[in-house]
Simulated assay, not measured.
Amino acid sequence: MSLTDVDWSKLPAPEDDSTAARVEGTTLPQLELAATDGSKVHLADLTGTSVIYIYPKTGQPGVPLPDGWDTIPGARGCTPQSCAFRDHYKELSALGAGHIFGLSTQSTAYQAEAVERLHLPFPLLSDADLTFTNALDLPSFEADGQTLLKRLTLIVRDGVVIKAFYPVFPPDRNAADVMAWLEENPA
């Protein structure tokens, strides 16, 4: 089985804790996040439509995931989710997504390995200091002493969250769900 071929029926699905309801309509905070392309991104200042998929942690070949990773609802699937956004990048852009980002609490250096290995055509953003997480009160969990984010995808227009997908499961279907929503809700 490859990293992108996962039997989702054997993994625990996350439950809806109303995070989407409290995040939709929120104006993004004025802060900058480090990106894997070397830039600093001010999400609140981006114009047009942006898609930000938030994920717990990408694994690295040869490095074990936290103990019990597959028993944490929604933890597994960061690579298939990123690959789906990569594979649908052109379609998402054609539907008006001017900016696409992945976001996690991992360091930019750690994320850079995933961008290169997975050939992602968009940058990943680091919220290692949890400023974005805390400002939006994003759902998180602890694993091996790390604060990790629960999987959530935001569609933002001119700095305001207009749609939040949560919980996201299975993660490899997330990009297709975002495309369907963008088709039904053009800018």
Rank of each mutant, 00 (worst) to 15 (best):
P61A: 00
R117N: 03
W69A: 11
E113D: 13
S107E: 06
F85C: 04
L95G: 07
F122Q: 03
I72N: 02
L31N: 02
S82G: 12
A75C: 13
P121W: 11
Y110A: 04
D87H: 11
L125N: 10
S82C: 12
D70H: 06
K90F: 04
T49K: 10
Q81N: 09
L65Y: 08
E113N: 06
T105N: 09
P123V: 02
S126K: 06
S82Q: 14
I54T: 04
R86L: 04
R117I: 14
T36M: 08
T47D: 10
G68R: 10
V63F: 10
L124K: 07
S104A: 01
C78V: 13
P73G: 02
V51W: 14
K90R: 12
P64A: 14
G102H: 00
E113R: 06
A35N: 01
Y89R: 03
S93F: 11
A112G: 14
A112K: 15
T71D: 08
H88Q: 03
G74P: 09
L33D: 12
G68E: 15
V51M: 12
G48P: 12
A112Q: 15
F122W: 09
H42T: 08
P66H: 09
E116T: 06
V115G: 05
S50K: 14
A35L: 06
S39M: 07
T49G: 10
L120P: 07
T105R: 03
V115T: 15
Y89H: 07
Q111T: 08
V51Q: 15
Q60R: 08
S50T: 13
L103S: 02
K90G: 00
Q106P: 11
S93A: 14
L103H: 03
T108N: 05
G38F: 01
H99L: 06
H42G: 02
G38S: 01
V41E: 13
T49Q: 06
Y55T: 05
T71W: 14
P66V: 11
G98L: 12
F101L: 02
L118Y: 13
P64N: 15
Q106V: 04
K40Y: 02
L92F: 05
P80W: 05
A109H: 03
P121S: 05
G68N: 14
A34W: 05
S107T: 15
E32N: 02
T105G: 13
L124A: 04
A84L: 10
A75D: 14
K57R: 14
A44K: 15
